[in-house]
Design a protein around this nucleic acid. Structure first.
Lengths: 151, 151
DNA sequence: ACGATATAGTAAGAGAAATTGACCGTCAAG
DNA sequence: CTTGACGGTCAATTTCTCTTACTATATCGT
């Protein structure tokens, strides 16, 4: 069996992560477009996926999404323009600003969470609820360890 | 518990996939750089990750990696320039060309596979070999279903 | 309180990358 | 031998990423 076939039959962790990430993004933003949010693209996910209802700081969004803070800045510019968020001063730190979702942003967040939950429900049905729950537990551990560079 | 905390405590499938993909890529290409392949960047993975020892066609690489064939074309240009692959005519189809790894390419492929295998071995040790094997089985099913857009 | 250092956010431009539409040569079915 | 499909490349446009630098505010140590 040659390498190409091995990679198909037994794909590695990175390959599978990429397949899931990109195909899930495609489905998510396709569904969002149909549900009234056609202007959003996957890159906006770096903000919208982590945004808190009460507002988040750009630095926190940068750290959680793994993007540079300049990227978050331009994404927030776009999202302000599109009406999804607004900037407010952070009362607890005058250097900082809070990125706060508008009603449109809250609607997108709710729909987005529902779409992803539905996708996961589908997979859980296919492989069994218990197996899926175990899968997610291990995945979370692996993701955390990998992110932190643990041995 | 607010949304930001929920997303931390119980991240969704897409978020975890992204965390694993990007942190694994970072570790992989960092290690490759230390092992004599400093010029390669994650984007080259679209070719090198799927390349067969005996050569692969650009269209196959495009389909497997999910990239447009134009992207594969420019990646192959770069990899030819860097000495990792060469283009050969495909004897079985005169339209097609085979992307064939050079000795340098074969070295990179072997090292890359070893590094990823080592990363996976670490995770398997942390969560238990059996649990990790089950995790990968479910992951493969999920990745395949998600990629194909199955219900 | 004071100065040194660190952090939050922004700006601007160079460089890299993705996307689109078109094109040529080859293949395969009828 | 014609027609439609496929493999690969070209070129132009748009989008994205990275780097460096700067202002304002906060924090720490003395």
């Amino acid at each position: 069996m040659n390498r190409a076939e091995r990679k198909q039959a037994d794909p590695d962790l990175g390959v599978m992560a990429g397949q899931v990430l990109f195909s899930l993004q495609k489905e998510l933003f396709g569904a969002l477009a149909e549900q009234g949010h056609p202007a959003l693209r996957p890159r906006h996910g770096a903000v919208m996926a982590y945004l808190d209802e009460a507002g988040s700081r750009a630095t926190d969004l940068a750290q959680q999404s793994g993007q540079h803070k300049q990227v978050i800045g331009t994404l927030v510019d776009e999202l302000v323009e599109l009406g999804y968020v607004r900037r407010e001063p952070d009362p607890r730190d005058r250097r900082a600003k809070l990125v706060v979702p508008t009603d449109l942003g809250l609607d997108q967040m709710a729909k987005s969470d529902a779409i992803v939950a539905d996708i996961e429900r589908r997979h859980a049905e296919a492989v069994g609820a218990e197996a899926y729950a175990a899968f997610k537990r291990v995945f979370k551990t692996v993701a955390e360890r990998q992110r932190r560079g643990l041995p």
